[in-house]
Every structure is written in structure tokens, then in C-alpha cells.
Design a binder for these strands. Structure first.
Lengths: 184, 184
DNA sequence: ACACCTCTTGCAACTCGTTGCATAGGTCCC
DNA sequence: GGGACCTATGCAACGAGTTGCAAGAGGTGT
């Protein structure tokens, strides 16, 4: 399981409540690991029971109290252990690829429309990531340590979106060419 | 859910038993959608109950009987419906990216070793896919229809592996450079 | 006073996927 | 005949993740 470790990473950067974490998983960390708020609350409870984090109730003005979580020494130890452990291969799982392979059993034109929609989605995501890259890392050459790590993960996101765009373009081009040939 | 649809696609290509399907999910289809045999048997039962497939017990010589499944008209209809339906965005989920981002909270050298191991894995996969590409599609230019679909999905696999290789190489290079600088 | 909004935490039920095991028929070999 | 192994199907239990809903606390509007 990696959600508890993703939470440990996020809490290592800064202590947070369940809702704070939920918001972080909606942006930065969420770009490469997603989680719903229910999942986060449930996991936080288990982690506290296991002694990886401890919580403190903090009163707020004009808002309900919140429970702020913090990583314990045991949590830091677990994080280090997990970091060094081999990562199991995550098999590729793409609904889109299943559909592309199945296109001849349905309406091909609609599948091409799906491809065009996905292409637009991935172009938007690429623009988002490149915007963050230019805003937060205008000069990547001098980076080191934690900042370099964050930059390189973002680069992974950029490259991933570029992959989708390139492949979907190849897909659409090839089918456009095949279709044109049929018409002649 | 896409497993039932992946099964419909595979059964559309050719009728099969649960174990046949398990073997297909270990190779061709499995390159972009995986499933264990228990999952397949369970899903086949449900699909038969829903009327998407029908089964026939076939006696074999020297082996236990097998139940061969076949797509019904309702199954073909469902497949067509699913093909045209929009595909929800699948958020990226990469344990490796979480680890890379967290490297400063553990032993960085071990994380670099993980990256090198992943790089080797993806090089192997790329070689596998490129081997299939050259064996099955030596002349991709004339392809159309179902063969073109299969070729293009394979191209997606090749490009995906190439993405991992390129990014991991960038990651290792950047950290090698940062480390060298520290030493000076 | 009352309805209604947001913030924060959480429960319950469900689906999806994995792991471990069971069963039953059959071959091959010693 | 006994044991190892393969084919084929399946159950049970668990863990991970999603969806829907609830409840309390505090604010705002009329």
C-alpha cells in the first residue's frame, strides 16, 4: 500500500489535518497519487493506531476544531524502510487501449471522437504542468535535494502527458490515412 | 468497470473457457489490462447471469471438461454501448513518483538503485514489445481495420516504455550531476 | 427564531482486486 | 498403487477504493 506512505511524505513536509491533506491530494501530490477524503480519514486513524502519526486537536476561531497530524519517530522509520524496499511493477491498465483494440466491434467514428476528446484532455494537462514548471522552476539547472526531487517528478508528469499526446496523434493520423485510402 | 468489457472483446475475437481467457490476460490483452483467474471466473459468472455471454460444456480427451463462453447478442450490444460511452479520466498513480518525491526523507542512494532497477525493467519490456512489433507488423503501412487497431495499441505500449526510459534517464542524470557538484 | 450555508470529521455499504485454499479429473513415472 | 504434476473451476476472506450520507459546530440572512 502506498497511500499511507504518501501521507507520511506529505506530513513530513508539514503537519496537517485530514481536510488539509484532502486538499493537498487534490493538487500537488494528487498529480501522481489520488485519494478521497474518506480514504484519508480512515487511513489516518489506522496510522495513529499503529503509532506512525500522532494528532493534536487545535481550536480555530469561527470554525470547528481540527485534528492536526504529525509524523512520529516510528513513522519516519517506516518511511525510510518503505523508500528502500523494492517497488512492485505496476502493470499498465488502460481502458482507452481496450477500447482502441475493440473499435471494430462498434462504431469506429465514435471511438475516434473519444480519441480526440482524450487528446484535448491531455493537452490541457500538459499546459497545466508546463505552467507550474515555468512558475516554480524557471532555472532548473542549479536545483538540488528536495527541490530537485519535486522538479523531476513534475518533469515525469510533463513527459507522461507528452506521451499521450504523441500516441493519440499517431493513432488519429493512422486512422485518418486508412480511411482516406478506403474512400479512393 | 472495464474487465467485463475486456472479456467481451476477447470473446468476440474467439470463444474461450475461463482458463483460456486467463492465459490471454497473461499475454496479449494482459499488456494493457491484467486480471487474475479468480477475477475472470467470477466476472464470467456474473456476465452469464446478466445474459452477456452463454456457455457450453465441452468434453476433452485426457483433460477435465471445460466451459466455453461465447458472446450473446446482448453482449455485443453492451460492447457497442460501452465503446461509444465517454471514458473517465484515469488519474495517474505512481508509487515510484511518490518515492522520488520523498527521497530526501530516506537513503537517497537506495532510491537511485530503485530507479536503476526500474530502468532495466522498462528496457526489457520495450525490447519485448519491439520484438512483437517486428514479428507481427513488419510492414505497418498497409494495415487497416482490426489489424491496424492491434498495431496502434502495441505502438502505445512501445511509446509508454520509451517514456519511462527517457524519464528515468533524465532522473538519474540530474541526480548524478547534482551529486558530482556537491563533491566539488 | 429559523432556515440554510460551510467546515470538519466520520460511518456504512458497495465494488474491485488479491491471496490462499479446495476440489475434481487426468497424465506420467517409479 | 503412490506421488508429483497439470488442467480446470471455484469458494472465502481480506484489503483497497468509491459513493452516499450524516452529524456537529459555527457562521449568515431574513
Amino acid at each position: 500500500m502506498a497511500l499511507e506512505h504518501a501521507i507520511l511524505v506529505s506530513l513530513s513536509e508539514r503537519a496537517a489535518s485530514g481536510l488539509d491533506l484532502t486538499r493537498r491530494f487534490d493538487k500537488s501530490i494528487g498529480y501522481f497519487w489520488t485519494a478521497s477524503h474518506q480514504q484519508i480519514y480512515r487511513t489516518l486513524s489506522r496510522m495513529e493506531k499503529d503509532g506512525w502519526v500522532r494528532s493534536e486537536v487545535v481550536a480555530q476561531q469561527g470554525r470547528p476544531d481540527k485534528k492536526v497530524y504529525d509524523v512520529t519517530a516510528a513513522g519516519r522509520e517506516e518511511l525510510g524502510r518503505w523508500l528502500a524496499a523494492p517497488t512492485p511493477a505496476q502493470p499498465l491498465r488502460s481502458e482507452l487501449m481496450v477500447k482502441f483494440r475493440a473499435a471494430s466491434y462498434g462504431d469506429r467514428e465514435q471511438v475516434l471522437d473519444l480519441a480526440r476528446a482524450k487528446l484535448a484532455e491531455h493537452r490541457d494537462l500538459l499546459a497545466l504542468y508546463e505552467g507550474i514548471e515555468q512558475r516554480d522552476f524557471p532555472k532548473p539547472d542549479g536545483l538540488a535535494g528536495r527541490e530537485l526531487d519535486m522538479y523531476l517528478v513534475l518533469r515525469g508528469g510533463v513527459r507522461m502527458e507528452q506521451f499521450w499526446i504523441d500516441w493519440l496523434t499517431e493513432y488519429l493520423d493512422a486512422h485518418t490515412r486508412a480511411h482516406t485510402k478506403d474512400e479512393r
